[in-house]
Nucleic acid binder design. Structure first.
Length: 414
RNA sequence: CGGGGUAUAGUGUAACGGCUAGCACGAGUCCUUUGGGAGGAUUUAGUCUCGGUUCGAAUCCGAGUACCCCGACCA
């Protein structure tokens, strides 16, 4: 992509109405545009990142048997009345539209999918099922805040599993948990699987995937060796400084961002909505359910909260909008040609490149913008480098520079 | 929803109740410049909305709206 053609321009100043790190950097660097509190447009750079996160999630969900679908955002009142959630609970944060206010915009999809499943599933032979979607969700948050971390409109992957037995469910719950850790790891986040309250859904513990970050709104009490983590909301007398219940380590307490969660739903929805199946023994039984959520947009915000320095964002490789930021310095024909040739050659090798081809910007400005945008590799072509038939490579996360022959560049940035 | 704060040009900011609302960035044109946010010339564009007080309001008062922060809430 040519930087000269990018719609969004980099801004030196942070907007005065954004305080959070993620919103400031993402806005300044031209990844997102705020439409209203808690609702953002993803600009070309931001949309690429969001897509990458979603694709990582998609791959890992498919790895644990997930089948992707796309449900309608519209929620019929009748389904939500079956579970009593149309008013009270989640229904209260649902945007209601249409003249009579009888259609909701989906804040979560248990009702919808349970309805579909009860239509198709009638025997234990039809189970288990693992169904997910990646979709925009709407919630009337009382207070949207912190950029992408808490929006009223946000992206969510929601997976639901349906089982004949509790044992089968538990096995899958563990697989899903492992997949979640993997998703976040690929996004450059190290997550803590954290015990949390069941909220509306269940009286059992549920699990949240928390990423330690000062900008987070949750607090976790955790074992630094990874044996234990619990949300402070349900920690009771337990606090940082005490001994880990699982080992001899001292527990720590820190702010964190909830990037995902998994819930044992049990028979709550299947009972309420009469989603039954006939088991081997000929008995009609409610389907055992679980649900599993990840917010790709919130994950994007969390990545920025963690991977940045004073100059800007430092994207982990797998989610970066591009692999290489190619910067041309000087507008001599030879330089421009060398840069353009390298741009095309990298593209041919399927390496994603943002090419700063602008000839009216000074080097300092280009470097500053590159640091802000945060693409993993910076490749500079200038009069100086082409004399040696070379390109200067630098990783965003490191200080060191190296000159490599132009035709070798692709190998280094892979 | 309770509490606090803010609202001036595309962005960031300044202006005692009183002169033509100033500055910087950005953007446009021209010239020079090109390895860490360049220089000159010139142009561009603004007081959130409604009402009130006043000879006179960006400034004071009231209401509304929007946004930010704290809290409550958060499948």
């Amino acid at each position: 992509m040519l930087q000269s053609e990018l719609l969004a321009k980099v801004s030196k100043e942070a907007p005065k109405d954004e305080k959070s790190v993620n919103a400031q950097f993402l806005t300044r660097a031209g990844f997102i545009y705020k439409e209203m509190a808690g609702a953002y447009t993803y600009l070309p750079l931001g949309f690429r990142v969001l897509r990458k996160i979603e694709n990582i999630i998609r791959e890992e969900m498919e790895n644990i048997g997930g089948k992707e679908i796309l449900m309608t955002i519209f929620q019929p009142k009748s389904l939500w009345e079956e579970t009593g959630r149309w008013s009270g609970g989640v229904g209260d944060i649902m945007y209601k539209c249409d003249d009579e206010g009888e259609i909701g915009l989906g804040p979560t999809h248990e009702e919808m999918l349970t309805d579909i499943v009860r239509h198709y599933v009638s025997s234990y032979r039809d189970l288990p099922q693992y169904i997910f979607q990646i979709q925009t969700k709407f919630r009337k948050e009382l207070r949207a805040k912190s950029g992408l971390l808490r929006g009223r409109e946000f992206s969510m992957k929601d997976l639901y599993s349906f089982h004949a037995t509790k044992e089968d469910f538990l096995k899958y719950y563990k697989r899903a948990a492992a997949a979640y850790v993997k998703v976040f790891k690929r996004c450059g986040l190290s997550s803590l699987m954290t015990e949390a309250s069941g909220g509306d859904f269940t009286k059992d513990f549920t699990h949240e995937f928390q990423v330690l970050a000062p900008g987070g709104e949750d607090t976790v009490i955790y074992c630094p060796k990874g044996h234990f983590s619990r949300n402070k909301e349900i920690a009771g007398d337990l606090r940082g400084g005490q001994k880990c219940p699982q080992c001899t380590e001292t527990l720590k307490e820190a702010k964190s961002i909830e990037v995902g969660n998994i819930f044992p739903l049990g028979e709550k929805y299947s009972e309420a909505m009469k989603a039954y199946f006939v088991d081997k023994d000929g008995q009609r039984k409610p389907i055992i359910m679980g649900c599993y959520g990840i917010g790709p947009s919130r994950t994007m915000g969390a990545i920025v909260e963690i991977h940045h320095d004073e100059r800007g964002i430092i994207w982990p490789k797998e989610v970066a909008p591009f692999r290489v930021h190619l910067i041309q310095i000087g507008k001599e024909k030879r330089v421009a040609k060398a840069a353009k040739d390298l741009y095309r050659s990298l593209q041919k090798q399927n390496i994603e490149v943002l090419y700063d081809d602008r000839e009216d910007k000074t080097p300092g400005e280009k470097f500053a913008e590159a640091d802000l945008i945060g693409i993993p590799w910076r490749a500079v072509i200038s009069e100086k480098t082409i004399k040696k038939n070379s390109v200067e490579l630098k990783e965003r996360s490191k200080k060191s520079l190296r000159l490599v022959k132009i035709n070798q560049a692709a190998k280094y940035v892979k």
